[in-house]
Design a protein around this nucleic acid. Sequence first.
DNA 1: ACGCTATCCTGATCGC
DNA 2: TGCGATCAGGATAGCG
Length: 277
Amino acid sequence: MPELPEVETVMRGFRTAFEGQRIRHVTVNRPDLRWPFPLDLRERLEGQEVLSFHRRAKYILMRVGNGMSMMLHLGMSGRLLLGQSGMNTTPPRHEHLVLETENEARAGLVDPRRFGMVDLVPTDHEDTHRLLSGLGIEPLSDKMTGPYLHSLMQSRRTPIKTALLDQRLIVGLGNIYVCEALFRSHIHPTRAATSITLQEANRLATFIRAILTEAIASGGSSLRDYVQADGTKGGFQDLHLVYGREGEPCSYCATGYTVSRITQSGRSTFYCANCQK
DNA sequence: ACGCTATCCTGATCGC
DNA sequence: TGCGATCAGGATAGCG
């Protein structure tokens, strides 16, 4: 589910609710998601002050006072429900982990498909965690330039769409935002990554940055079950120009072409066969 | 060495 | 209304 804008939105809500507070209670409702929860998750977090929140790729990092960081990945269907403790409401289905603070802030991790993950890592060594150490560049950082993107694409013998989904090269993009970025850049998704010119890489860099920035500003894309931490829906799905719009007229080339859908490495790709070359 | 695929799960939706 | 098939925003292990 969540790509960079959704994870960033969730992380900001989590930060607003939890930063500076002390964790009073941790409830672990099952032993694992994609991987087992750390056996000492509860004892490592309870009683700790929440120092700060960060995002790396699609991971949320919560740093606490004992030098540990909780890593959280939402997978495909993960949501973080923020609220107050003691409301006596029925817990939602698939709420696998609950954090509560001394000030009654409550965060529940709901993940029906259980593709998400939670782990602990020493804050000083976050970057060496096996899931973080191989990650590519942050698309909203200064490293994300056309020339650098161009050089990254030269090393992959896959379609450009597949390469942009590869978190070892550039992080944060998922199926939606890759489709949208290629559409706005007028690049055909099946093109070999190595065929991307510098000029096209410049366009891609510009649009990737723009799309992610716009999506964060509108609170992410709400499809199916994604909502922001405060329960409101994001609004970026209304700005999708191709994703999920198979058969609809292309919004750019006004020639009667409609949005096509193909499958690439098992995932749907949406594009305009006329204006993406 | 690299790239493709099958796979982990549940739930929503679609066609019959 | 019911039922089976299909699809879903991710990322890995394992295979060729």
